[in-house]
Nucleic acid binder design. Structure first.
Lengths: 210, 210
DNA sequence: ATGATATTGTGAAACGCGTCACGACGTATG
DNA sequence: CATACGTCGTGACGCGTTTCACAATATCAT
């Protein structure tokens, strides 16, 4: 587990690099410099070089990085070969957006089932993903260890309890509720309304240097 | 503009505090300590105290914070900023989720118009927000300076160009595309697929200390 | 009143991260 | 082969943020 040394900030950028390297590869490019990459992904080139350097010396001075080599390396590092199954809870608009989103494209995660409380939605498929009733959560969940929470916020804690009681290890919480979980469960919050407010706040108070 | 002194990290937490204080107030609670608050919003209590301290001494030692007083204070601090109007581009599932979301609740931003390329959607209202055709963007946009981008990713750059040509200052980009903008335009990226991959990566490589 | 208890506000230290700047080293060219 | 050039990898620095830890001070109970 020597990857513990990789900074979290770097880890969050890896999928971005991977995705872009893939598209480079498809374009037939087999060489790329940190500067080109920087233009494309909008990350400072020094940051990119430092990020890569955590994995060792992947590039060649005076040349850059070999796209194919880098891709192969990241594929292994990011475990792109093993698929992670994900369950989605709450098939509202946001949940539906996720279901329609093609997570398999350059991606190692797949939504394999969804849950909702609305009987009109349950029993059906959406883009090949079965939608079960929320009452059947425990029965259907199986080995899935990662969940996406897109339910109304007053349901968030209750559903979270059920998920974590059933061995869920990671939850991506899109509700504004700050849920409490037992130790060992990792929750990431994405609070859309806060993101907008933050953008507005920065615009007003932290003008870009132009 | 003395809020320039407030750290960005603090600024991003303010809406969170405000939202939770509101719910405390509705529960009739009139006193809260940084530790209680910490449990609820999952932010270290020392961080909360430091955040509050940027606004002066709001609490009482040995007692905590008076909920009503704190609320009143934040209301002035946050809401004295007038309402910010936002335009949404791309009324797919994700865009629809935003339109249905009540951004006015404890919030100083409001989506006032939306755009889409689908003639079936344009000309109608959604929760009181008019949906115009994307071709009328320049004509309708008016003074709006903040945009939410929920279009297909291969449209992202083109729409971004049109928005920034028309004086847009802030863009919240939900597409995976990393768009290029003129100087002076601020773009925040929220990349849903990266968020999932990051969660999975952390689960595998950064086990929680249990 | 008095002592026990609770909780703030904040210096100071620790941390994580991004950026600069440059030596090292490989490639490209004539 | 020699020289010019390009690009990496990284030591060092600095900034913004979090966390520690505790004096100061208020409350609470008797």
């Amino acid at each position: 587990m020597d990857q513990n040394k990789i900074p979290q900030a770097t880890a969050k950028r890896l999928p971005l690099y991977y995705r872009f390297l893939n598209s480079l590869h498809q374009q037939g490019k087999n060489r790329v410099s940190s500067n080109e990459l920087s233009d494309a992904v909008k990350v400072d080139s020094a940051t990119i070089r430092r990020d890569f350097s955590y994995f060792g010396a992947l590039g060649k001075k005076g040349y850059g990085y070999n796209v194919e080599y880098l891709l192969g390396f990241f594929r292994k590092t990011l475990d792109q070969d093993e698929l992670t199954e994900v369950a989605l809870v709450g098939v509202g608009n946001l949940g539906t957006a996720f279901l329609h989103y093609n997570f398999l494209k350059n991606n190692n995660t797949k939504i394999v089932m969804a849950f909702d409380a609305d009987p009109d939605k349950t029993g059906t498929d959406m883009d090949g993903v079965p939608i079960y009733h929320i009452d059947d959560l425990e029965e259907k969940i199986g080995d899935v260890r990662v969940g996406i929470l897109t339910v109304p916020s007053d349901e968030a804690q209750r559903i979270t309890n059920r998920l974590s009681n059933y061995g869920m290890e990671g939850i991506l919480n899109f509700t504004p509720a700050r849920v409490t979980v037992p130790p060992g469960v990792r929750v990431h919050h994405i609070d859309l309304s806060i993101e907008i407010q933050a953008l507005v706040y920065f615009l007003k108070h932290y003008p870009l240097n132009v």
